[in-house]
Structure formats: structure tokens, C-alpha cells
Simulated scan of single mutants.
Amino acid sequence: MAAGGFCRLPNGRVVVALNLPSPYAGGSGSVRVLVHAQNRARALTRLRNLGLRAVYLRGNGQPPTPDEITAVLHHPDGLIWRTAPGADACAAELWRPIRSLMRAPATPR
């Protein structure tokens, strides 16, 4: 499950924002993921196809901000992430492509 929300754009498409536990932080961290898609169902399907199976959007408690919408619309993949805002997160952190989140972390030898 995830906290988040969505925003419908004038052209009918949506931007979905979700706060998810980080897949590789051992449950201690969280990330904010933005997805640009035709509709909410397709946005969630894009995330599920990447391996994030338990992703659901219930309600619209934390919709994307105008800056987040601009960021995802200007990214070629339309799927980006950064550390979720919080006490330990830097407000000026850059958005990253989803590929960098889904890569397996380096294991020490």
C-alpha cells in the first residue's frame, strides 16, 4: 500500500504520486515516485510491471505538486523518483529515473 494522490491534466492524462517504502533500504527509508500515464490504472500497472506488486492508490491525500508534475512531464520515461520528503531528506534532491531505483544494490565481497 502507498500514500499518494493524482492530478488529472487538461489533456485527460494523469500524474500519479506515491510514497513507497524503498525496495532496497530495508524498510527504513521511503521514496516518492511519480508516474505519467493515460489513467490511474495504467500508472499503477507501470509500477507493478517493474516489480512493485503491492502498489495501490486509495484516496487523494498527497497529490503531486506543480513542481512534481513539471518534473515528470519533462522526463522522457514519465517515471521518476527521489527520497520522500522528511527530516533526513534534502529538499533540493534531484529526481532520478526509475531504472536507478530498480537496480540491485551493490553487494560487498
Rank of each mutant, 00 (worst) to 15 (best):
R42S: 08
R13L: 01
I80Y: 11
A87G: 10
R46S: 07
S100Q: 13
R32P: 05
R13T: 07
L9R: 07
A17I: 07
R109M: 04
F6W: 13
R103W: 01
G78S: 12
L50D: 05
V33S: 10
G61H: 15
R103I: 04
P97V: 03
V15M: 01
A92N: 05
I98K: 06
R96N: 13
D88A: 04
A41V: 14
A89V: 00
R13V: 02
G27C: 00
G26P: 10
C90M: 08
S30W: 06
M1W: 11
D67W: 07
P97R: 01
A71K: 04
Q38D: 14
N60T: 14
L50W: 06
L47Y: 09
M102T: 08
R109F: 02
V55I: 15
A84V: 00
G27L: 00
Q38G: 02
A89W: 01
R96S: 12
R82F: 05
D88G: 03
Y24R: 06
A41T: 14
R42Q: 12
R96V: 00
R46C: 08
S100V: 02
A92S: 09
R32L: 14
D88E: 03
R53G: 02
R82I: 02
T45W: 00
Y56E: 15
L18C: 09
D67A: 04
W95T: 10
L18H: 07
N19H: 15
S22E: 13
G29M: 03
G29Y: 01
A3L: 15
A89P: 03
D67L: 04
S30C: 08
R32I: 00
P76T: 10
R32H: 12
S100H: 13
G5D: 11
W95K: 12
Q38N: 05
T65H: 01
Y56S: 14
G29R: 11
M102W: 07
A106Y: 12
P10F: 11
V31I: 08
A84Y: 05
A106W: 11
Y24A: 09
D67T: 01
S100Y: 10
G4W: 09
M1E: 15
A43Y: 01
G61S: 15
V33Q: 03
